[in-house]
Every structure is written in C-alpha cells, then in structure tokens.
Design a binder for these strands. Structure first.
Lengths: 195, 195, 195, 195
DNA sequence: AATGAATGAGTCTTCATTCAT
DNA sequence: TATGAATGAAGACTCATTCAT
C-alpha cells in the first residue's frame, strides 16, 4: 500500500487557510500564502483540495455543520422553549464568537461560495418551531407569520455575526456580553418571558 | 463648462463601478471591466481616480455621507422622539433598499476600505441622543448604557443591511415590509410607544 | 494619443513563434520561449494575441491565405489548363518548401486549430475546375468524380506537404526536385499531356 | 500465469493510451487520464513503462512492426509483381484504415518519437525491389531512380495516411474506396498494367 | 489633457515521476 | 510487487498602473 491521505494535513490546510482568509480576505490570500503558512509544498495543497474555491467552501460548510448540528441537538432535547432559547443565547451565540474567522469568511468575500440562503432557511424553520409555542402567550405576536419571523431571524442572526466581526476587528468597545445581554432583553421584553 | 463635463465623467465612473463591484464583487471586477462599462479609456479612469481602491472608497464615503446627512437633518428637526424614530424607520431604512449596490459593497469585499467603525460610532451617538429621552419612561431600560445601545444598534443596523442584501439576491421570500414591520414592532414593544 | 499597436511587433511575435512551434512543436514551446526569442515582455505578447492558441491559428490562417490567394490568381489568369498546372507545380509547390515552418505547424500538433478540411475543400474546388477541361481528352478519366478527384488531391497535397517536411528534417536524401519531377510525371502520364 | 496477467495489463495500457493519444493528442493526454481509462493505479503504469514517452514509442513501434512484417511476408511470397501490388493495395492499405489511432499518433504529435525516416527507408527498399521488374516494361520509367521512387512512395504513403486520418475526423465525404481506387488507377496508368 | 500600449510581478493550477509504505 | 500521496518546477495568463505620444 502507498501512503494514505492524512487527515491531519487536510485539517492543517483548512486551519491555516481559515486564518489567512479571515485576516487578509479570500482574494488577498494567495495559494502561496497558504503554502508558506502550512509549510506544505503546493502540490500537497492540491492533493487535498481541487481548488482555492474548494478550500473556502469546505471551511464554510464544515464550520456551519458543526455549529448547526449542535444547535439542532440542543433544541431536540427536553425542556421548555424558554430553556432552549436560553441555551441558544448562552451557549451557541458565544460559540460563534469562538470562530470569528469562520464568520468573517461566511459574511464577506466568500459569500458567493456560501449558499447562505439555504442555511438561513434551515435556521428559520428550526427557530420558528421553537418560538411557536411561545407565541400563543403573547397577544401581540399571536399571528406572527413565518415570513416576519424570518425577517426577524435574519436581522438578528446576521446582525449578531456582523457585530461579532466588528467587535473583534475594531476599536469599538463592543463586548460579547453586550450582545448576549441585548438579545436576552429583547426576547424577554417581546415574549414576556424571563430567561 | 469643462467642469460640468468632468463631474459627469467622474459620476459615470462611480456609477458603473458601483454596479460592477456590487454584482461581481470588488476583486472580480477589473479596471478593464470599468473601461468597458463606461466606454472611457483606461487613462481617463486614472485621471479621475488614483487607484481602484480609491474608487471603492469614494463610492462608500459619498454613499454614506448622502444617507447620513439626511438622517441627521431629520433628527435635528422639530418633533417628538417617537416622530423622529418613525421617520427613521419609514423613510431612511427604505432608502437603504434603494441603494443595495452601495450596501453590498459596504458589507463585503470592500470592508477593508470602509472604515465602518467610524460610521457606526457616529450613528450610535446620533441614535443614543434620540433614544435617551425615551429611556426615562421605560423602567426596564432606564440604565441602558451607551455600550448596550451600541450593541443593539449594530445588530439592528448591520442586520438590516444584510437582510436587505439577502432579500435582493436570493430566492428567500423576504420583503422590505417584513423588515420595517419587524423593526417597528420591536421598538414599540421595547419602549412601550406606538409608532 | 497614446502609442498605436505596432504591426512590426505583431509580425515579430508571429515569426518567432512560427520558428519555435515548427522546431520544438506547439506544446513544447512555452510562452516564455516566445518571450525569450522575441525579447518582448510577456504582457506584450498578450496585447497582440489573446492566447497561445490564437498565435498558432493566426500563423496557419495568414500563411494559408497568402499561399492560396496567389494560387487563385494564377489560376484565374489567361492560359491553357496545362500552363496553369505547370505554374502550380513549378511555382507554388516550391513555394510551400520555402515555408516549411508553416507546413509543420499545419500538419502536426496544431491540427486542431487548423480547420484543414475547409482548406482542402476549397482547394478541391479550385483544382477540379482546373482539371475538368483536361478530363474530356482522357478516355479513362472521363467520368472522374469530384470525390475521386478529392481523394487524389488530398493524397497528393498532404503527401507533398509531409514529404517536404520529411525532406527537411531528416537524413533522407529527398530533394525538392524529386518531388516536383514526380508530380509532373504522374500528371503527364495520367492526362496524356506534356508539361 | 503471472506472466500472462502481466502481458494483459501491458496491452491494456497500450490500448487505452493509443485511444487517448489519438483522440485528445499526446500532449493533451495526461498519465492520470490513462490511469482513469485503464483503471490501474499510477504506480502500475510505471512498472510497465519507464515514461510517457516510452508508451508512445511502444505504440508506434509495435503498430508499425505488425503491419510491416505482414507486408514483407506478402511480398516475399510467390507471384508476379502485379499480384503483389494488388495485394498491397487491396489488403494492406485498408488495414491501415483499421488502425487510424495508430496513424494519427504516427503522423502528428508523437512525430518526434517516431523515427519515421527509418520506416520510410525500409519501405522504399521493399517497394523498389518490387517495382523494379515492372520498370523494364515502361519506356518512360526505365531510369526511375531510387530517389524518385522514394519521393513517389513518401508522397503516396504519407498522403494516404493523412487522407485516411482526414476521412475519419472530418465531414469531408472521403471514402476508403476512393483512396484505393485512385491508387489503383495511378499505378495502372503509370505502369501500363492491369490490376 | 487624453489616450491606450507597455509592463512584469504575481496568479492559480497541472503533471510526470518518485518513493515510502 | 503494488500502490497512490508527495513533489515543485513550470505552465498559461491577468491586471493595476505608468508614461510616451
């Protein structure tokens, strides 16, 4: 047998690329930057990925999948809607902050490779099913449509991602706790619940 | 006379570039694309702008300035905070939708040239001054800090921009009215006002 | 006004490329070989030709056109069919030998870019119209079809080209005069004429 | 047993390569194309052939040898020169058409690996010895030199190969029968024989 | 001022061959 | 012996910017 493909190498390429794409941008990162960063020869990059595009696409898809699957599991578990929402806010929003590289790539240059619509649709469905039981209690929101719900979700979700990105890259004194705090407040206020 | 002609050309370059950057992305648009689109010779592009970067920067700065100045004026005018907020939502958010090209550029590839932090800071100050009188009425929000306010603003502002971008580019059935409607609801709910 | 495209440069690129393609083959000639040979920078090659392919295609088309137009003129002039055929053999076959680079390219690697069928069709028409009056005299050939004529022509024409190529490149003692002499003999013999 | 299997693989590589070289050209066929086509791993290709070049060379040499040996045998057998020539035309020219892949490779890209001169020399000797007795009868051809004979042979032989190649690849309505028919006619006419 | 040819560093990617397993 | 990952020089081509005219 010849050598087998080495998952460690594959991940190393992915990790270095993610960092570079996020810091310098997809288009300002050259394959030779990745070569320099990983220490692998060019050819090796291309035995693991067909193209530069495929690298971003993989970063986005695998990053998303990891996050989303966990969210899904958490929502499938026992517990009141309130409890689940609390988990979402306290556990999964912070987790996004841990992978800002991923977010940067998701939102900016690679947006063409990102199929973000599909992701948003799935997230809408998940969230809507979660929020539905809570709507009954709120007279005002009783007939919140899926469309409005989606508008809300997109604004919050993408807003949070962008905010997280800004918080990192800029001198703005924006902290993670401000963001989760604000989200909690909005939800408590809107649904009349206490998280 | 010569002055007029110059300004026309300058705007023409800006307009074509904005369209191209927004549709194909900054890095996928070459100067020769701009040449083709405008019909001007390369040299001419460079007599009006020092570099490709300067073109984006100009698009962003001028686009922002136009929008922001009007917002500022509206807020400086007479009227209750509620009235002003209503104007913001009903007049200036929709205006953002009219210039999605500008937004796309602002948010994605050109983000390096965008100095978005400065813009957000100014917007925070403006909004905070606007909202302050309303906070007094809300027991819950009484001690909302500027930082939290900024977190909120960033999330909403960038979230709306991203949502607008998505609404345009994708098959998601997201409409302008969903977005403004949602914003109104949130604010009414949060501040206990009726817009 | 800026500089104008320089026909001298264009021809220089064409000439160098023809020599290189012919000697080393199309695929074994790199753009940087052409750069080295011409002394022009890469960029310059590409301001005159869109691609490497376009260079071969141009060599073949322009080379063919030059030769064919002259053949056509000669055949359009006054004179008996025999005289015209003599001219063809004595003047235009030798001329092919003068541009063996062109022939090598035509026949070998670039054959995909060559549209040789179209060329052969035109040549068949021309030759057939020329030979027709002579057919009447030959009982045997009286009903030579255009198809057979074309078979003959292709065999001779391509055969001669290949022979010329071999004559140059190899140690075979094959001389131009052998080829034209043989052609004359065949024709005299076949049509019962004296050239 | 092991030997059998080996030879099968070797021939399989040769067959696939011939097809690919002929269809896409030598330079446009990569070793990994051959890998894909044969289903063998790269390493295996290289245990049977030292290099890509050696594959073409082998295709050409073995293809030639097969054809030539049979020609030689046929010519060595009893019978009048006319009978032998008839056999050549009716049996061996058609056989060339059966292996157009081989011809394509022989004539075009692989010409560097082809040592075609040596082949032509041998063929000239064979043909000359065959034709010699027929020359005596023809006053005109009596002093046909070997050189002229070779010119003729090259023109016809390569011309036929090229014609065969064209007949296959193009929309030209050129048929095998046109080619053999034409050859017969030329020979009958030139040598005053009836085939 | 207007023009557009000139430039060359830099881009992504390929691929024949080797050699560790 | 069989395998296929590893390699890196070399490939074609791009493009922002300059500057001669």
């Amino acid at each position: 047998m010849a050598r087998m493909k080495d998952e460690t190498k594959r991940l190393s390429i992915l990790e270095s690329s993610k960092m570079l794409f996020s810091q310098k941008g997809f288009f300002n990162t050259s394959i030779s930057d990745i070569v320099r960063e990983t220490g692998f020869p060019v050819g090796t990059i291309y035995t693991y990925f067909k193209s530069k595009d495929e690298i971003v696409r993989t970063i986005v898809e695998e990053g998303w999948q990891q996050w989303y699957e966990q969210v899904e599991q958490a929502c499938a578990s026992e517990g009141s809607p309130e409890a689940k929402i609390r988990i979402l806010i306290d556990r999964f929003i912070p987790r996004l902050f841990d992978d800002l590289d991923f977010i940067s790539i998701l939102l900016t240059e690679a947006i063409d490779y990102t199929r973000i619509e599909a992701k948003v649709e799935k997230l809408t469905d998940l969230t809507f099913s979660l929020v539905k039981p809570m709507l009954a209690r709120s007279q005002m929101l009783q007939d919140l449509s899926r469309d409005s719900m989606q508008a809300a979700l997109i604004i919050f979700f993408l807003g949070i991602l962008d905010a997280a990105r800004l918080a990192r890259s800029s001198s703005i004194g924006l902290k993670e706790s401000h963001i989760t705090g604000f989200m909690k407040m909005i939800i408590e206020n809107t649904f009349g619940v206490s998280l």
